[in-house]
Structure formats: structure tokens, C-alpha cells
Write a protein that binds this DNA or RNA. Structure first.
Lengths: 142, 142
DNA sequence: TTCTATATTATAATTATTCTAAACTGTTGA
DNA sequence: TCAACAGTTTAGAATAATTATAATATAGAA
């Protein structure tokens, strides 16, 4: 409940009404020790199975997008079948394990800093993402 | 027609039957001076409007995937609403213009080489992709 | 030419995501 | 405390990209 008070504060201070659903989603996302990499479905399943709460999918989508807009989540672009999100919003990169479809953080220190010598004229760089696709050594990749 | 002979050769030598449709798709993709960045819809539209040919969408999908598997196309991961492909299969990276939804090549020399200090144990790196999202300087990004 | 494996096609099915419009709820202020 | 209203949630419909299906057509070998 102490954490919940924090979530309520966090929501209110970012101009989001602290509704029952949003607080639950905060719990599912931020009440953990490790970074959480998830798809909308993963999150919905977590809420349903771990928190015994049924939240409409539309709300899960809305909330995740609201949180992303507020900077509490990052969206990661992988194979374009679905969206992946990350509770780690610091600058960092990702491994994507093609065997298991799992995302793994790759912190900045693991890659020399990326210096783009020439940017597109008149445009501002919003993000630089590095995605490293890996798979078992022994098997052929599709 | 000289190019078509080349396409037929290329197809046959990679174990793909040189069908009317595949040859047309080769024309649409490879008969150009510049790299082509496209979605399936872009390609279908090109074939219909520029080459006056109507090829079933399923065939366009099948062929693009076959070409990707053979290494003639690269798939680029951006916002997960649709897939983007690239006729430039050399190692290079991309700018993505969020104002226009346009992909722009970013050749390797524009970025210092990316050195991953620690890879995931037991896995092989299949690809390293850098995606630089840009947008107009003056406007707020979503 | 005939045969067969491979391709193509229209269409249906599937999946992720967004939209809609009605019902519900936090918050404000009387 | 409570009315009012804007902001939220919801189920379900709509949309869009992609894949599956199964019938028809075709390339290439014999």
C-alpha cells in the first residue's frame, strides 16, 4: 500500500487520474526488481494471473500508450508482428533472442557510444536504438 | 529484356522458378538505380501502377519472403504496424523520419563501428541494426 | 506431350491494434 | 456531502497487416 501511494502520486503528478486499473497496471509493471520486457498480451496475462484482476484490453493499450508518452515506458521495435515495451527507460540497447523471442537488455557500456557523423538536414534525432539479433550457434536461422 | 534474362538466371540459380510474377517483382525491385525501401503495399502499388500488372497480394508476400530468405532483401524493424524491406542488403543502418514515415539509408561510415563487448553466452550474433528516429526540430513528438 | 511438383490466386481466417459509444468514476467546487 | 462534468473504462465492432486454404495454373523434367 505504500507503493500504491507512490503510484497514485506518480500518476496524479503526471496528469493521469489514478484509477483502479492504472494502479494495478503500475503494480504489474513497476513492482519488480528487474526490468520487464513485455508485449500487451504478456502484460494482460500478468494482470490476470498474478494480480487476479481482469482489465479490458483496450484499457491496457490506452494505459501503456499513456505511460509511454509520459516517459515511463519505452517501445522497442523488433519483428513487426507485435510491439514490445520496456520498463527500463534509460538509454540502452537490446539483444533479441530469435530462438525464444526474448528481449535482453544490453547496457550502454557494452557498446561503444554511437556517434552519428551526419544527420539528416533539418531533423532532430529522437532516438538511437541498437538491436542485436542472436540465435543458437548450431542451428540454421530462417 | 537483357535484365530479364539476368533475373531469370538469378531466380533459377537460387532454386526459385522464374515465373512471370517473380520476374515482374524483380523488375519492380531491382531495375532501379537507387535503393528501394518499401512495404508490401508500396511494392504491390508499384507493380500495378508502374508495370501495369496485377499480382495477387499473397504472391507478393510469398515472393518477398522468398527473396529475403535468399538474401536479396533485408527486413527492417520499425514501429510495429507494418514491415519494411530494403533492396540494399549490405551492412548499413537507417534513419526513420517520423514526420513522413520514410526510411533513409545510413551507411556504415556514418557511424563508428559497433563493437559489442559481451555477447549472450552460447548465442551467435545474426545482425546488428541501428535505427535512428528523427523528426522536425520544431514540433513536439508524440 | 504428359506428368508432377511448385506457384498463383481469391478468399477466408487470424492477429494485433484502434475505434466507438455507452456506462462509470475521480475530482472539483457549491 | 453531493451534483456535475470531464476523463476513463468497457465490450464489442472495425481495421489493417499478414497468413492459411484449397482450387487452379504453370514450369520443367521425362
Amino acid at each position: 500500500m505504500n507503493t500504491n501511494t507512490n503510484f497514485i502520486e506518480k500518476l496524479r503528478s503526471s496528469g493521469l487520474r489514478p484509477t483502479k486499473q492504472r494502479i494495478k497496471i503500475c503494480e504489474a509493471l513497476f513492482d519488480r526488481n528487474e526490468t520487464f520486457h513485455f508485449t500487451i498480451n504478456d502484460l494482460a496475462k500478468t494482470i490476470e494471473e498474478k494480480l487476479n484482476e481482469k482489465i479490458s484490453l483496450a484499457t491496457v493499450y490506452n494505459t501503456v500508450h499513456a505511460f509511454k508518452k509520459k516517459g515511463y515506458l519505452k517501445e522497442i521495435s523488433i519483428n513487426s508482428d507485435k510491439s514490445y515495451f520496456d520498463t527500463n527507460t534509460s538509454v540502452h540497447h537490446h539483444f533479441f533472442d530469435e530462438d525464444t523471442n526474448e528481449l535482453i537488455d544490453c547496457n550502454q557500456e557494452n557498446i561503444d557510444s554511437i556517434n552519428i557523423k551526419n544527420n539528416i538536414t533539418g531533423k532532430k534525432i529522437n532516438s538511437v536504438e541498437v538491436l542485436i539479433k542472436v540465435a543458437s550457434d548450431y542451428q540454421n536461422q530462417k
